[in-house]
Nucleic acid binder design. Structure first.
Length: 143
DNA sequence: GCCAACGTTGGC
DNA sequence: GCCAACGTTGGC
């Protein structure tokens, strides 16, 4: 079991859209990068992840959980790309911006900071707790 | 809007 | 298999 961070552009897939899908969740489509795909392949049902918005807000706004493990991406015709299904679990009471994350020495090794372009990233347990705390969740969900 | 960083492509 | 050229992403 593990923690992750999933990136989205608000125009492509917003947190509101994600929440509307409810507990059944929705396919996390559109990933066309091998490293990101491999990370999705490693996901287990019940894993938790941050929902991060790149572009305008650049912040972690919510928590999702994996409800279906990797399977072919229905938006891909080549059969080469896969996706998982994720469902919204909770809002962060206070979104955590990239700028804030960068001010914390213990978060300087987050993939988000080190390799901002990777759209599906692993998150360590320590990072998970720290960002949850910054977001106003005192008792973070755990895997 | 710019540009650095990164991944992919394709010629050799 | 190397590497230059190119396209894309995403922070600023």
């Amino acid at each position: 079991m593990a923690y992750w961070l999933l990136k989205s552009e608000v125009d492509a897939w917003s947190w509101d859209q994600q929440k509307k899908e409810g507990r059944k969740g929705a396919e996390w489509t559109g990933v066309r990068n091998y490293q990101a795909r491999n990370n999705m392949r490693a996901m287990k049902e019940g894993d938790l992840g941050f929902f991060y918005l790149s572009g305008g807000d650049k912040s972690v706004v919510g928590i999702v959980t994996v409800v279906k493990e990797a399977h072919p991406d229905s938006t891909d015709g080549s059969g080469q790309w896969e996706c998982v299904d994720v469902a919204a679990v909770a809002d962060l009471p206070q979104p955590v911006t990239l700028a804030e994350i960068k001010t914390k020495p213990k978060l300087e090794d987050m993939v988000l900071v080190r390799n901002s372009r990777l759209s599906v990233q692993p998150v360590t347990e320590a990072e998970w707790r720290a960002v949850c705390a910054m977001g106003g969740i005192s008792d973070p969900p755990s895997v």
